[in-house]
């Protein structure tokens, strides 16, 4: 019997509002509610994915967790190596440094996230140097270990980033993120800039590293197919709010929010025999500076009733860990995707 794994991260009521200022005196006339009351948690060794379309606040949420942005409100409780919980949102800048060692980031663009004037060794060893590993030989040994971990030959140590392909660069970025033995990795669209054949290698690498090192991932992505392959649980965001949060299989087969249903049906399936009717939501994503009244999704929702226009729905539990922010969640019988392997793999 193993005990229920502890949570490594608890985000509660997170808000990040960006002021909109106008006029000569730069008076604040409104706010872009990029993240508006977001609550979730991640357990040790778990992958939680944040999905949604551009402007839904998924990247802003991840940046708040790393304190690259200071949240407007809310708590971000991170459990450190020693087991105590620290509220990252309220920590002064100076107190952040020891924590940053334990939470690291993998970026989307492997072409702009590596310094072209540094060798691979210098790039991967920089976090070690910053954190006081003075001895050159120790650093080089660790770089060799890390390259081995991300399956790159140690012979590449003294090359510069331009000599590497997109997939190899992404491996270098992963090695750098792992340099300080972090517990939590925030990966913002880590495979979306890669070609299909290389994307598969990096997805597998992320899964392997998680198994070997017991990492926890916050995986930010827009590609639901990739999300299906990596996640334990998935949170769907729309205009700054989580609209649905559920275990992966549940969310894909039995969505409880109309937006999730629309997202799932919009994904093109690589099988010409499955050209079925799509549920395309009307119009465009709402403006987070001026969100619609009531449920933010109601102008695009094909099930919307009068109540959706006036009353903001709460994120409510449905069944087993399944949360949905919809007044009609119990009544609607929404379509998900069917389980099973795509025929192409036969």
């Amino acid at each position: 019997m193993t005990a229920e794994p502890q949570t490594i991260l608890e985000v509660e009521g997170l808000r990040k509002w960006f002021p909109i200022s106008r006029g000569l005196l730069r008076r604040v006339v409104g706010h872009v509610r990029a993240v508006d009351d977001v609550t979730f948690s991640i357990k040790h060794g778990e992958t939680l994915s944040l999905v949604g379309e551009s402007g839904c606040g998924k990247t802003t949420t991840s940046r708040c967790i790393l304190r690259a942005l200071t949240p407007t409100d809310g708590a971000i409780r991170f459990r450190t190596e020693t087991g105590e919980q620290v509220d990252v949102a309220k920590l002064p800048k100076a107190g952040l440094r020891p924590l940053r060692r334990q939470m690291q980031m993998i970026f989307q663009d492997p072409f702009s996230s590596l310094n072209p004037r540094m060798t691979i060794t210098d790039i991967i060893a920089e976090p070690l140097l910053v954190n006081g590993v003075r001895d050159l030989e120790t650093r080089r040994r660790r770089v060799r270990e890390l390259l081995d971990l991300v399956q790159l030959p140690a012979a590449y140590m003294n090359r510069f980033p331009h000599a590497f392909s997109g997939g190899q660069r992404q491996r270098i970025g992963i090695a750098r993120a792992l340099a300080l033995n972090p517990a939590l990795i925030v990966a913002d669209e880590p495979v979306s800039a890669l070609d299909v054949s290389v994307q598969a290698q990096v997805v597998n690498l992320l899964l392997d590293l998680q198994d070997r090192l017991g990492l926890s991932y916050l995986f930010v992505a827009h590609d639901l197919s990739v999300v299906k392959h990596v996640s334990d649980r998935v949170a769907v965001m729309y205009v700054g709010k989580i609209v649905e949060l559920a275990p992966t299989a549940d969310l894909f087969t039995r969505p409880r929010h109309p937006y999730t249903e629309a997202l799932l049906s919009a994904v093109p399936v690589p099988d010409p025999r499955r050209r079925t009717g799509r549920i395309v939501p009307l119009g465009e994503v709402a403006d987070p500076a001026n969100p619609p009244s009531g449920c933010h999704f109601h102008p695009r929702c094909r099930y919307a009733v009068e109540r959706c226009r006036v009353e903001i729905p709460a994120l409510r539990p449905m069944a087993d860990d399944h949360l949905a922010r919809c007044h009609l969640a119990e009544e609607l019988n929404l379509a998900g995707v069917q389980e099973g392997h795509p025929p192409a793999t036969t």
Binding site: V203, S225, K228, H229, T248, P342
Partner: peptide, 27 residues
């Protein structure tokens, strides 16, 4: 064939590894 097998799919089992193509596209 390998390209089709390496595409992630919403129909796949959660947390399943993808089939890969060895190496990368040559320079």
């Amino acid at each position: 064939r390998s390209l089709l097998q390496s595409i992630p799919s919403v129909l796949a089992e959660p947390r399943s590894r993808l089939r890969t193509i060895e190496g990368s596209i040559p320079h």
